[in-house]
Structure formats: structure tokens, C-alpha cells
């Protein structure tokens, strides 16, 4: 029931927003078309500004993947995580998730079809994927948009959140599905 409601909200949020803001603007005597165009100009600049940051990040991630580093890191972590009976099948996904959105989506899809969508592995993979974002991509794009190069503690905080989401997904899935 609640999920149905949220579904309706996410379907209608964008169109409602796109109509409500200009209507409110018109009521407040804003020249909505001119104002929109003025704001939209920023889109090109912002997109162009993030290009160098995005190139740097995606090239490094792409090279790592091509070299087979993801599997290597996964097998390096395996002995550590097998102590808490963390399934080693999920490890490549865990390594890939903060690095590449499309790469990790590919791994989840494969895990889900190999082990079945209603299997423990399938559900854990989906929960782990959905509970975090592609940290390095977000860092590159968001900081790139404002030309920030000294990122201070953002990387550590973001990666800590990734580890927590993975471990909590494991714990909660064990409680719910085992």
C-alpha cells in the first residue's frame, strides 16, 4: 500500500513540479520564460566544467577494470570477510559499486540471473546495489561542478558509508531472508 503511494508520488513529482513552479512564478509576476532561459544557460557551462574531472575519474576506473583489478581486490578481501560468512560471490560487486555504476549494474544483473532473483545472493546483491551510489563518480561530478580539487574528508566519509551499507545490507538480509 505504502509502496503504491510512493510509486504514484514519484510518477507525478516531476510533472507537478514543472507546472507548479512556473504557475507560482506567474502569480508572482515573474517573466517565467525569460527567467527559465536565463537559468538554463548555466546547464551548458556546468556540463562542460565537469568534463576534465569526469575524464580523470572514468579513465582510472576503466583502466582498473580492464586490468582485472576488481577480481584481484575481491579475492584479497575474501579471507577477511569470510570470517563473518559474507558470501564471496558478492565481493566483486562490493568493490565495483563505488567505482562504476554501469559496471556494478552488470554484476548485479548477472548475480540475480545466476542465483535467481529470490535467492539470498540475489536479494543481497540488489539490496547492496540500491543502498549506495557510485561514490567516485559523484565525487568527480559534484566537486568538478565547482572546481574543487582539495576534497578533504569527503572520500573517507563516502567510502565509510559504502562499507556500512554493504555490511548492514548483509545483516538485514540475513535477518529477513535466511
Amino acid at each position: 500500500m505504502a509502496s503504491r503511494l510512493i510509486d504514484v508520488v514519484s510518477t507525478w513529482a516531476v510533472p507537478l513540479f514543472l507546472v507548479a513552479v512556473p504557475v507560482y512564478g506567474a502569480i508572482k509576476k515573474v517573466k517565467v520564460y525569460e527567467s527559465f532561459v536565463e537559468g538554463a544557460k548555466g546547464g551548458v557551462q556546468t556540463a562542460v566544467r565537469i568534463i576534465p574531472y569526469l575524464v580523470a575519474m572514468l579513465v582510472a576506473v576503466g583502466m582498473l577494470r580492464a586490468a582485472g583489478a576488481i577480481d584481484l581486490m575481491a579475492s584479497a578481501l575474501d579471507p577477511l570477510l569470510s570470517r563473518i560468512r559474507f558470501p564471496s560471490e558478492i565481493l566483486p560487486l562490493a568493490i565495483m559499486r563505488p567505482l562504476s555504476g554501469s559496471g556494478s549494474l552488470g554484476i548485479v544483473t548477472e548475480l540475480v540471473s545466476t542465483y535467481g532473483p529470490d535467492s539470498f545472493i540475489g536479494r543481497l546483491a540488489a539490496s547492496a546495489y540500491g543502498s549506495t551510489e557510485t561514490t567516485f563518480y559523484v565525487l568527480a561530478v559534484y566537486f568538478g561542478a565547482v572546481g574543487v580539487r582539495k576534497t578533504r574528508h569527503a572520500v573517507v566519509a563516502g567510502l565509510t558509508a559504502d562499507v556500512v551499507s554493504l555490511l548492514v545490507a548483509f545483516l538485514v538480509c540475513r535477518l529477513a531472508f535466511m
Partner: peptide
């Protein structure tokens, strides 16, 4: 990203100008 960027920045500008 340019298209969606422009779309949302445009709408946000309207929201700003109207005090929303």
C-alpha cells in the same frame, strides 16, 4: 547532462525569481 541540467536550472531559476 547538458539538456537535463538546463531544464532543471531553468526551473530552479524561476523558483528563485518568484521567491519560492
Amino acid at each position: 547532462l547538458i539538456g537535463v541540467m538546463a531544464l532543471w536550472l531553468g526551473v530552479v531559476k524561476v523558483a528563485e525569481d518568484s521567491g519560492l
